[in-house]
C-alpha cells in the first residue's frame, strides 16, 4: 500500500513536470513572437495601431492559408513546392471568369478551387501511386503550372473584375478586411480536421511512421492523395484572394510563396521529419514573418539590412525553439 502511494505521488510529480515542459515547448515561439512585438512597439508605437495590426494580419493571410495545406503535407514527411505556381494558375483561370456581368461569383470561385484541387490530386497521385519523391513531383508541378498559367493568359495579366469578386480581397466587413475572415475560417476548419477527424489522425500517423501506418491498416495511398489535394484547394483559396486583392489575374503571381509557406510551417514548429506540427503554430510562424516585415518597414530599416535581419531572426527563432526542446 505504502509503495503504491509513493508511486502515484511521483507519477503526479512527473505528470506536472511533463506538462510544464510541453507547455514551454508549445509556447516557446509565442515568447519569441511577443519579444519581437515588444521590441518593435518600444521602437515604433505605431505598430500597435489597430489598423496596422489588421494590416499585418491581412498581409499574412495568403501565406497562412497556403501554409495550412503545406503544414499537413509536411506532417506526412512530404513537401509541396508547387504552391506559388498553382496560385498563378488559379489566379489567371479565376480572373478570366470574374469579369463584370459574366458569371455569378460562385463560378470563378468553384472553378478556381477545382483547378487547385486537380493540381493537388495530380501531385498526390504521382507521389502515392507513382512513388515519386514529393520534392520531384511537386517541382514538376511548380514548373508545369507556371507554364500553363502563361499559356492560358498569353503572358498578360487579366483584369476588370465584378464588384463582388473585388470584394473578396479588397472588401471590409464590420471594419475588418474580408481576407481575415477567410483566414479565420480556413484556420478553424484545418485545425479541426487535423485534430479531430480520422483524416487528421492518419496524417500524423503516416508522418510518424509510414510502415507502422501500413501495418495498422491505414490506406496510406488514399490519404496521401487526399493531403495533397487538400493542400491544392487551400492554395486555390489563397490564389483567389490574391487575384482579387491585386485586381488582376497574373501569371507571375505567387513567385516564392511556396518557400514562405514552408518557412511559416517550420517556424511554427512543424517538423520536416514528419509527425509533428499544428495549424496555430503555422499561423504563429506566418505572424512572426509578417510582423518582422511590417516592423522593419515601420522602423525604416535600410532595405539591404532588412534582408540580413530577417535571415538572422528566422534562423535565430527556430534555433532558440530547438534549444528549448532538448
Amino acid at each position: 500500500m505504502m509503495e503504491k502511494d509513493v508511486l502515484s505521488e511521483t507519477q503526479k510529480g512527473v505528470k506536472s513536470r511533463v506538462k510544464l515542459a510541453s507547455n514551454i515547448q508549445r509556447y516557446g515561439m509565442v515568447l519569441v513572437f511577443f519579444l519581437m512585438v515588444t521590441i518593435i512597439t518600444i521602437l515604433s508605437p505605431r505598430f500597435l495601431d489597430p489598423r496596422n495590426l489588421l494590416n499585418v494580419v491581412r498581409q499574412i493571410s495568403i501565406i497562412s492559408i497556403v501554409g495550412f495545406g503545406v503544414t499537413m503535407v509536411i506532417i506526412t514527411t512530404g513537401i509541396d513546392l508547387s504552391s506559388g505556381s498553382v496560385i498563378a494558375l488559379v489566379s489567371v483561370v479565376t480572373a478570366s471568369l470574374a469579369h463584370p456581368n459574366q458569371y455569378p461569383l460562385i463560378i470563378p470561385i468553384l472553378v478556381g478551387l477545382l483547378v487547385g484541387g486537380i493540381t493537388g490530386l495530380i501531385n498526390g497521385t504521382l507521389i502515392a501511386i507513382g512513388k515519386l519523391p514529393a520534392f520531384i513531383a511537386t517541382l514538376g508541378m511548380m514548373i508545369t503550372a507556371r507554364g500553363l498559367a502563361l499559356i492560358y493568359s498569353d503572358g498578360r495579366p487579366i483584369t476588370n473584375f465584378s464588384e463582388s469578386f473585388n470584394f473578396l480581397g479588397q472588401g471590409y466587413l464590420f471594419g475588418v478586411p474580408f481576407p481575415i475572415y477567410v483566414l479565420a475560417l480556413t484556420a478553424l476548419i484545418s485545425h479541426i480536421i487535423l485534430k479531430h477527424t480520422k483524416f487528421g489522425k492518419y496524417v500524423y500517423a503516416i508522418g510518424g511512421n509510414e510502415q507502422a501506418a501500413i501495418i495498422s491498416g491505414i490506406d496510406v495511398v488514399k490519404y496521401k492523395i487526399l493531403v495533397y489535394t487538400y493542400a491544392g484547394i487551400m492554395t486555390a483559396i489563397a490564389g483567389i484572394l490574391l487575384t482579387s486583392r491585386l485586381s488582376a489575374g497574373q501569371p507571375t503571381a505567387g513567385v516564392g510563396y511556396e518557400l514562405d509557406a514552408i518557412a511559416a510551417a517550420v517556424i511554427g514548429g512543424t517538423s520536416l521529419n514528419g509527425g509533428i506540427g499544428t495549424i496555430p503554430g503555422t499561423i504563429l510562424g506566418a505572424l512572426i514573418m509578417g510582423t518582422l516585415n511590417n516592423g522593419l518597414d515601420l522602423l525604416h530599416v535600410s532595405a539591404y539590412w532588412q534582408q540580413v535581419v530577417k535571415g538572422f531572426i528566422i534562423v535565430g527563432a527556430v534555433l532558440m525553439d530547438k534549444q528549448r526542446r532538448i
Binding site: L242, R245, L298
Partner: peptide
C-alpha cells in the same frame, strides 16, 4: 518588380506615419 510586394511595402509605409 512585383505588384504584391510593392503593395505590402507601401501598406507598411502608410501605417508607419510617414
Amino acid at each position: 518588380w512585383y505588384r504584391d510586394k510593392g503593395m505590402k511595402v507601401m501598406e507598411n509605409w502608410l501605417r508607419s506615419g510617414l
